[in-house]
Nucleic acid binder design. Structure first.
Lengths: 335, 335
DNA sequence: TTGAAAGCGTTACCAG
DNA sequence: CTGGTAACGCTTTCAA
């Protein structure tokens, strides 16, 4: 591999000049610039990014930390972040923590010792102290989706509780009388908020008690199991608000096996609006998050902080909306 | 941030000694080792990986290049690679090329200038010349899933043609008379091979002609559209072999909207065996690839090459198998 | 406009 | 066993 020295020699200039040409910094006469460019081409020289990082303390790499890569929500998000990163000349380091605090810390440490230029973090395992540490290292951070409340960092999320209310309200409107909820992980703010949204709507109704709330992971399989439990427990259940779309997909399957007709005997609403929610049979009514927009905004905010280290932290709470599909489209008489 | 020098000073030794302790290389007396360890702890010192890479020309990072992150096959694969990487003290750099040659080249270049210790590549855009270049840089490579034939590098794949045959044969066995195929991208070896497997079974039958082969991307939406076309074109179609599971999921939706009963009026077989194939309604019969095993093996082979640069390249062709689910489980009288 | 040289934080060789 | 020091390949002052 050729180094900057080889280029300098070939072009008959100093390494400093070559560096200037490469980085378009400082004054270089047109003539020498051409000579350098020529030498670079002839040697098919590629600057060594490691050396560059070491000396400049920046890497043009940002990292996105997600809790899972098997949940379609995150790939869709990653896509957005990657698009914007690439447009701005940044590479993306995609880190999958598997919802484990240990893996998260591992990544944080190793990213901290690598001059990543910024971090977008989606994890409920993150702690204030982690952020402080990153901040001391001078690494800007944007938190998305699962954010620490009241912390002084830029964050982007949606109003999960309002979403939960909206979902449940919709089920009531299409005529459901007994609505269950399948809650996501209990230790995650998002699913807790969605659950509260559900409670806001049905918590006071005479039939409601805790047995109408089942628990699941954010996965199809887990949603399937939780639905089976609910079906056994409540023969008269005619609506389910699932904490996310994956759970809703599992609910679809369980209901089908049980012989419940959707939506007339059982209506289902999901949350997130991943691509798949539109493509199941039947399509799933869901609370749509602006997934792409979240990723886009996150990356823009991060770039902003990278360029201007004194940028003020901002809190974004983006709007969600109900997307109507077959899983709740009951025939006229029900409405 | 503290450096190795700070540690050396605090422990009252030279940086060389600290380095020895950190890397467990060379002889260090127990006493000094303890002192160094102590200093490291007190300063909560973290070696700078960039500096380390620059000086040692290795990074303990391997990269996995995938064509897409929205197709569940790849996250499932990535999971396996990551597991093994982590067990061996390697970090994983996940690169998404979006099936674009340009992005691939981009990644290859930037990885080439970063001392990644190895590469697992899943891309039909890769060329022999790219591999030669990497090899000159001393970066070991393992190709998976979409491999260059006759090239002298380690590769792992499955027998796609045999899979195509198996799928189609199964449809014939459950009584299908007119079987269509939805082929994946024409420029990809995998989908072409699967298509040939289909042809091996039905190519000679009297009813067959090219109109029984539709074309699609490897996505649910695209599979949905292709199925709609087929339904219009062939009223008497009673079986579909889809080039992958995503396409099959789309076919399910299209058939449902069209009013075709699955499996009795239309039986469907997919390919890959992603988790989702089990969880749709109905479950999808599919040709199961050993996804986890592919990723596991790829990472092991890579580690092998990293450790022993003269390891001989190996060609693996792993077995696939038919997994029977509801989408082809016709009632007895049909069989 | 250009070049020399001092870092950046490690590793690893060579002496002692 | 331990320390001094020259790399690793680049960026960035400081002088000229």
């Amino acid at each position: 591999m050729n180094t900057i020295r080889d280029v300098a020699k070939k072009a008959g200039v100093s390494v400093a000049t070559v560096s200037r040409v490469i980085n378009k910094k400082g004054k270089v006469s047109e003539k020498t610039e051409l000579a350098v460019l020529q030498a670079i081409k002839e040697l098919s020289y590629q600057p060594n990014s490691i050396a560059r990082s070491l000396s400049s303390r920046k890497s043009n790499v940002v990292a996105l930390i997600v809790p899972s890569i098997n949940n379609a929500f995150f790939p869709e998000l990653a896509r957005a972040v990657e698009d914007i990163a690439q447009l701005n000349g940044y590479k993306l380091f995609l880190c999958n923590t598997d919802d484990s605090r240990e893996k998260l810390v591992d990544y944080l440490n190793s990213l901290g010792s690598q001059y990543v230029d910024g971090l977008i973090i989606d994890s409920h395992n993150i702690k204030e102290a982690d952020l402080t540490k990153l901040s001391r290292l001078g690494i800007p951070v944007v938190m998305i989706d699962r954010v620490i409340e009241n912390s002084n960092y830029t964050s982007i999320t949606v109003n999960n509780r309002a979403g939960g209310r909206l979902a449940t309200e919709h089920l009531l409107e299409v005529g459901c009388k007994k609505i269950a909820h399948i809650q996501g992980p209990k230790n995650e703010m998002n699913s807790v908020q969605r659950m509260w949204g559900y409670r806001d709507q049905v918590g006071k109704l005479p039939w409601f008690d805790e047995s109408w709330i089942a628990h699941a992971e954010f996965s199809v399989k887990s949603g399937y199991q939780a639905t089976k439990e609910l079906l056994i427990r409540h023969q008269d259940m005619d609506g389910i608000f699932a904490s996310n779309d994956l759970i809703a997909i599992g609910a679809l399957k369980a209901a089908y096996e049980w012989g419940k007709k959707i939506p007339n005997e059982l209506a289902i609403v999901g949350f997130d609006g991943i691509d798949m929610s539109e493509l199941t049979v039947p399509g799933i009514t869901t609370i749509q998050q602006p997934i792409y927009q979240i990723g886009e905004l996150a990356m823009h905010e991060l770039l902003n902080q990278i360029k201007n280290s004194h940028a003020k932290p901002k809190k974004y709470i983006l709007d969600i909306e109900l997307v109507l599909r077959e899983s709740t489209m009951r025939s006229q008489r029900y409405i």
